[in-house]
Amino acid sequence: MRATSSKCLNASARVQSLTLAEPQNLPPASAQTVSATGHAAGQVLRHCVLSILVLAVLWGALTGWRADALIFGLPAILLGAMVPFLLPPASGFRLSLRGAIRFALWFAVQSVRGAVDVALRAFSPDMRLRPCFRTYPLNLPLGAPRITFINIITLLPGTLSAEINDDMVTVHMLDAHIELEPELAELETRIRALFALPQPPEHSS
């Protein structure tokens, strides 16, 4: 049942893309993007239902599951579920539960290390600061994995993501003597595990 309905969706999406692409005589590249967006039409519904569910649970938890709060809650949930349509389309992502638990534990340790490090520097007489900027290539795919990577850099010990230029991130470091590459390579590996992305074969070199 599920399989046939998804086939129907695919077929209708393809028809739609043909009718859209041919009369206007679009170049092949844009025809491809049209068919790709048509393909995702079934997913839009799924995302919509998912975001309504998540927002409903959040609202319920925030208001203590009071039924009369839904007078404001229902419009808020529906408006919230429409917000993604106003934003540029984001690529979907999957999370791995095992990766997420490991990531959370590792992240907790790292953020304590980072905070203790900066607190000791703040209280120490000479602060031992040797600030510098370094660049690091962004290898993770665009979207959630890359955004997570750039935000977590700021919470790691001694590093702060300062600027992104194309596929390079500029990192500000409190201490130029700390090695940047191994720390960020480890973060990258852990973010791949978190988002269930395949690990690149030769990263150890």
């Binding site: 953020s111 304590v112 980072g114 905070a115 203790v116 490090d117 900066v118 607190a119 703040a122 700021t154 919470l155 010990p157 001694g158 702060l160 500000h172 409190l174």
Partner: peptide
Amino acid sequence: LHALTKADGLG
């Protein structure tokens, strides 16, 4: 910014 993001975050 290092001090603000990291120390206050853990605080």
